[in-house]
Design a protein around this nucleic acid. Sequence first.
DNA 1: CCAATATATAAGTACTTACTTATTCGAAAT
DNA 2: ATTTCGAATAAGTAAGTACTTATATATTGG
Lengths: 105, 105
Amino acid sequence: MVESEIFRALADPTRRAIFERLAGAREMSVSQLKAGFDVSQPAISQHLAALRGAGLVAERREGRFAYYRVDPKGLTPLACWIDRYRAFWPARIEKLKDVLKGMDR
Amino acid sequence: MVESEIFRALADPTRRAIFERLAGAREMSVSQLKAGFDVSQPAISQHLAALRGAGLVAERREGRFAYYRVDPKGLTPLACWIDRYRAFWPARIEKLKDVLKGMDR
DNA sequence: CCAATATATAAGTACTTACTTATTCGAAAT
DNA sequence: ATTTCGAATAAGTAAGTACTTATATATTGG
């Protein structure tokens, strides 16, 4: 299932941190990403492969560099899954989120 | 981290199915849940423990029965995490979701 | 009290995962 | 051409996961 792969990809803290870091930049090479994480380069490559398999991240090849970026469509299956359960959330949270939503316009 | 536990809990298809089933009912006993899943009773109890540990589900004890229900606050950390990346989503999706949101009023 | 029922816990196992180091592959630079 | 550099792959390993069966712990009904 698509959702399982996404949830599984984001369950790992290192992988989530990589994704969050990518989200903060337009794109990053593997070695740029490696700096700041206390794991080996292969580990980073393996995490990126997992994120890519889940559709969360896309790759651009340029010479011997590989640039990774967040795939905008990647999180939507997850967002749709969660939205099915909005009915359960406390009203308070919904209101807070509407406020936040209005702020970044 | 809180999010890791939630993502991990929902990464398993059986566990996600249990959560979805619970979301469709007000509450269910373990044996009620067991019916329909092709795993043993201990497996169900273990999945419920994982969901409870992640804060996704709450338990009510009554005699020898244990009734489980969705915890409304459970998904909010996940929703908040995702909302940090709304900026990346295609505008199209946002519009669709607004439509869906309007429908169930 | 005793047997039956509902659930949880224990212990074991096959499978998966998150890493490591070593190696390979491809592209640039010298 | 050969070395050097960026990234991917291979192979091994320790730890974690998702189940199983067997057993324990309550609670209820006869």
